[in-house]
Structure formats: C-alpha cells, structure tokens
Design a protein around this nucleic acid. Structure first.
Length: 447
DNA sequence: GCGATCAGCT
DNA sequence: CACAGCTGATCGC
C-alpha cells in the first residue's frame, strides 16, 4: 500500500481518509489538535460520533463520516506517487471492545486489509457470533492480506472467561460484603455492561462521577435514569476513575467506613498476591491473603486457563481484581486467526508489557507461514506509515509510549469543588474532567 | 496567561 | 509491568 492514503487511530495528517476505532485516549492522539479537525474525512461509528464533542468540543463535524457497524463506504483516493485513482471499499465490523468500537476491513485496489483495533471475541455470546458473521459476510471469498491484530493479551497463558461470567463473580463479591461500601475502577468509556449487570442483579444504583453520567446518557444505556446516579447517599456501590483506585485511597476510605475495591482488568500481574508485590518493593509483608469463596459456575463451560472455581487473586488487603477484560484473550485471538486466515499478521499494540509478535504464536495460521518477515502489502509497494504500527522485535523491552496529545475539554460540572490546591493547570483539568480522587473521598465521607 | 506537548508515573 | 489515563513542567504564542 502506498504511503499517505488512510490512517487508522492516527491523526497527525498526511493521509486522505482517517479512521477512528474507538474513543479511548491512546487511540485519538492528534484529533484534538489546535484549530479543530481539518486533515480530512474522519470515519467512526455513530456512537463515537455522539461522544466526540464531549472529548473534542471544537471538532468540525462536517468532516465526520458516521459508519454504522456492518455498513460500508467507498473511498475515492489517489495514489500519492502516481496520481492515479484508487478505489477502496471499507466495511465496519463491531469490535465489542467498548461502546462504539469498530474494526475496519479495507478492500480494493490495494488488496485486503483488516485493522481490528482493540477488540473482544467471545463466541459464546450472541453479539460476538453476530460480529463474526458480519465479518464473514463482508469478507466473502476474499483473503485478508494483512491483519492488524489487537495483540494486547497475545500469550497462551492469558486466558480468561467471557465477561458475563466475570460480571457474575463480581456480583458474588459484592453480595459477600453486604455492609461494605464498594468502589470499582473504570475508565472514561467501557465496562458499561458490567455496571448494568451489577445494578440489575443487586437492585442497586451505581454512583458515577458527573462526566461519566453524561457519557452513560449519551450512550443511551440508562434511558430512564434508574441505574446511574451522582448522588452518594443513594447507593453503596461506586464506579470511580481507575486512577482513583489506589491502595492509599482505599485505606483512606476505610477510615471512614468499611470499603472494598474491585478492579476489573485482564492485566495478569494484578492477579498476583500482595506478598509478591510487598517483597518486590522492599516493603514489609502485608497481612495474609484473605480468601473468598465463589459459587461454582457449571464447571467446565468456560474451557480456559483461568479457573473460575478458584478465588480471585487479591492484590492488596480489601482490594480484589477480576479478569474482566475488554481485550481478546489468547484463545479468542486464536479463533480469530483461524477465522480470518490472513496472509500475514502484525500486532498493533506496541506498549504492552510483554509485546509479542503475533506471528510467534500464529505463524502456522498465516498464509505466508513459510516466509520470514516480508513487506505485508502485495506487489503494490511498501506498507504505509499510517497502517504500520510501531513494530519492535520480540523480547525487546518497549520504550515508554509518547503521551497522548489530546486536549480533552469536557463540559464543566459543579461537583469539582475541592479545597486542595495543586496548581492552576490541575484545577483547570479538574474542572474539565469532573470528579477525581479527592472528590470521591469527600463525597463518601459526607455520605 | 493560556493551550499544547512532553516526561514521568501508576 | 500499564488495559488507559493523570499530573506537573516546559515551551511557544
């Protein structure tokens, strides 16, 4: 593929069309650049369109092209080198990562490429089976020349149950602590289904910070406003920003009232026991790990390495972590590879703690398995910067990822008052983004 | 003084 | 460790 044609999750310019897979900050770098968006047409899901102004208030929506899951669009591009016209058809496939997340399948004069973005692929769930069918329908007889794969958890040891199973485990934990306050660490987008499940199962509202409530309403997940609230006295279960979820904060909250924390995450090292962490940091050992019993969930229905019958690992006192992941685990990646059978595969996650070239595990599922690394495009030239992720060899420690360059200017909320002065910049950001650590503590201590 | 970007951290 | 994100420092306007 020639250079300068299309970019996915990269918005620094130089392309003729731009594609956003989902609205997490590390995928939107460059979108908030000064002067608004004017590099070219910007394709994303209708859900993402709806949320876009909350993340990028100044964005010029005339350049935004909503692409519904399953829908296609034709792109008329021109070769930057020869000026000849190029025809490319793009199809959006649900990625099931967070609300509005999409994969993009490109086919046309440049061959066939599939960019998954971040995705989950739980084929025990209807949504994933429908997504798989949508992908197969879109592919038809075509073969994917290059698959850009979410390799976040691309290691055979990283298997976890489908999200509904883990959601039920979380309900069990909360039920086992009837007199505790509960905080759950979440990001600005994602894990809505988990919170909905908890709310329905326990018949309990869930506190979220004001900006998160706005997101819920824009997503339409709580149309009757029965589930989520910003009023602290209505519930003992709170979803807090992931960065408020620290041992220090949990201990502080416990001085006010008994509180447990639950971190839903697929990150494997969070499953380690607290002793490991204490020793590794030279701190005195923590108290012994408390164990929690879970109801068995139909024994072998999960068929993964993670054993749902064993208690979830506790990484610190009063804090639990459960493998609720919005990224595909290894067995799902394997199934995806078997379904797509690409000629070659390239990982898109370069900052992973254990970046693994997916070819290492899936070479045998690639059409070009007998060849070493080669240019992934057909005979049309080298691959584009834009569609080539930051690649690095196996077993190399990743460098620190450059930070996001987005400038989220959220609408203001009144809850942001805090007596803790840090800096004007911090205060400004605080105003913009809604509740933070201190707000959460204040709010809970008042309750 | 302000926003954008970078460095550092979890 | 960093899924995605927050904070403070610095730079240019």
């Amino acid at each position: 593929m020639d250079e300068g044609l299309v970019s996915v999750d990269k918005f620094s310019g130089g392309s003729q069309a731009y594609f956003l897979t989902h609205l997490h900050q590390d995928h939107t770098r460059g979108l908030g650049a000064a002067g608004g968006w004017r590099h070219g047409p910007l394709y994303c899901s209708p859900t993402t369109v709806r949320l876009l102004p909350t993340r990028f208030p100044g964005i010029d929506t005339s350049l935004v092209r909503p692409l519904a899951p399953g829908a296609s669009a034709s792109l008329s591009l021109s070769s930057p080198t020869s000026d000849r016209p190029l025809s490319v058809r793009v199809t959006a496939i649900p990625a099931l990562h967070c609300p509005g997340s999409l994969m993009y399948l490109f086919r046309g004069d440049l061959g066939c490429m599939l960019y998954t973005g971040d995705f989950r692929w739980e084929l025990g769930c209807d949504k994933a089976r429908r997504a798989k069918q949508a992908l197969l329908d879109a592919l038809g007889e075509d073969t994917v020349d290059v698959l850009y794969l979410d390799n976040t958890y691309c290691h055979p040891s990283l298997n976890f149950p489908p999200r509904p199973v883990v959601a039920e485990q979380m309900v069990d934990i909360i039920r086992a602590h009837p007199d505790h306050e509960v905080i759950i660490g979440v990001d600005t987008l994602g894990k809505e289904d988990l919170l909905l499940h908890i709310s329905r199962a326990l018949q309990m509202k869930i506190w979220v910070w004001p900006q998160r409530l706005q997101t819920m309403h824009l997503l339409g997940v709580d149309e009757n406003q029965e589930i989520f609230t910003t009023q602290t006295n209505l519930t003992r279960v709170r979803a807090v920003p992931r960065y408020s979820f620290t041992i220090e904060n949990l201990e502080a909250l416990n001085t006010v009232c008994p509180t447990i924390g639950i971190m839903p995450s697929g990150i494997p090292w969070l499953w380690k026991s607290c002793e490991d962490r204490a020793e590794s940091k030279g701190r005195p050992p923590r108290p012994p790990v408390k164990s929690i019993r879970f109801k068995g969930r139909n024994g072998g229905t999960i068929g993964m390495d993670y054993d749902p019958l064993s208690p979830p690992k506790l990484f610190e006192k009063d804090a639990y972590t459960l493998p609720y992941s919005e990224h595909a685990c290894f067995s799902e990646l394997k199934d995806f590879m078997q379904t797509v059978k690409p000629s070659t595969v390239i990982g898109i996650v370069s900052s992973s703690f254990c970046y693994v070239n997916p070819r290492h595990h899936f070479r045998h599922l690639c059409g070009d398995n007998d060849q070493a690394e080669r240019s992934p495009a057909k005979s049309k030239g080298g691959d584009t910067d834009s569609l080539t992720p930051k690649r690095r060899p196996d077993n190399l420690t990743p460098k620190r990822r450059p930070n996001g360059s987005t400038s989220p200017k959220e609408r203001k909320f009144s809850i942001s008052s805090s007596s803790l002065y840090r800096s004007k910049v911090a205060m400004k950001r605080k105003e913009c983004c809604g509740a933070r650590i201190v707000d959460t503590e204040e709010v809970i201590s008042v309750a």
